[in-house]
């Protein structure tokens, strides 16, 4: 068994100890564990974020494998459980809290209350809007990092991170919708997830 000390010593030592201390004491909530959320969670786990709260209602399906971090062995499992397993294989000392629930108008405020950093990683644009509106309206302590616009295989460089409001960042090209004829592919979804994960790290370290 690899020890926590070994994993910590193995981080890129060109960063100061202070950097990893800040990351380790941080807590990030991820809502939606699809192509964005599963990749964001693993990137943050590799970066040494101390606590991750993962929220999704769904189970891993074979159609998820084209862009989500899951494997064939996860098919049929709850995404919360499958992702927790994968995170443990990267770093078993990260605290992972899971909530298996669908976000609705009724539970949205309660689910995210008190969270300092929240990644919105839903698939459905109406649920994205529901979460963002509710959090910005009722949780002024939360900084929200959302993903919007990563379908297809258009120019990667159009995917950007923008501060839209005081506590609200949007990553994506804001245009590329997923619809019949224009699906989701791993590269652009992962690029967008990378933007979200890096924005989270900037919020923690800056």
């Amino acid at each position: 068994m690899v020890t926590q000390q070994q994993l910590e010593d193995a981080m890129d030592q060109r960063f100061s100890k202070e950097v990893y201390k800040k990351l380790k004491s941080a807590r990030v909530c991820i809502a939606g564990l699809g192509g964005l959320g599963s990749n964001i969670a693993l990137m943050l786990a590799r970066s040494g974020i101390g606590t991750l709260k993962l929220i999704d209602f769904d189970r891993v399906d074979i159609t998820n494998l084209n862009r989500q971090a899951y494997r064939i062995s996860h098919i049929g499992k709850l995404k919360t459980e499958a992702l927790k397993e994968m995170i443990e294989e990267v770093n078993p000392y990260i605290q992972v809290e899971t909530v298996t629930a669908k976000v609705t108008e009724e539970n949205v405020t309660e689910l995210f209350k008190g969270e300092k950093i929240l990644c919105e990683a839903f698939d459905n644009p109406e649920y994205k809007a529901l979460l963002v509106n509710s959090v910005l309206e009722h949780s002024p302590e939360t900084i929200l990092v959302s993903g919007s616009g990563m379908a297809g295989y258009g120019n990667s460089n159009l995917i950007q991170t923008k501060r839209k409001m005081n506590n609200f960042y949007v990553c994506g090209d804001e245009i590329s919708d997923a619809y019949a004829g224009m699906g989701l592919l791993s590269p652009r979804v992962s690029i967008c997830a990378g933007h979200q994960a890096n924005m989270v790290i900037r919020l923690i370290l800056e």
Partner: peptide
């Protein structure tokens, strides 16, 4: 002007000449 407009107020809030408004529109995929 720096504050979120609650969804339920969209029918009531009237835009003025002095307003600065940011509209974020979400697209599908994730």
């Amino acid at each position: 002007n720096g504050s979120i407009i609650p969804k339920k107020s969209y029918e009531e809030v009237i835009i003025t000449e002095a307003d600065t408004i940011e509209i974020v529109s979400f697209v599908g995929g994730g």
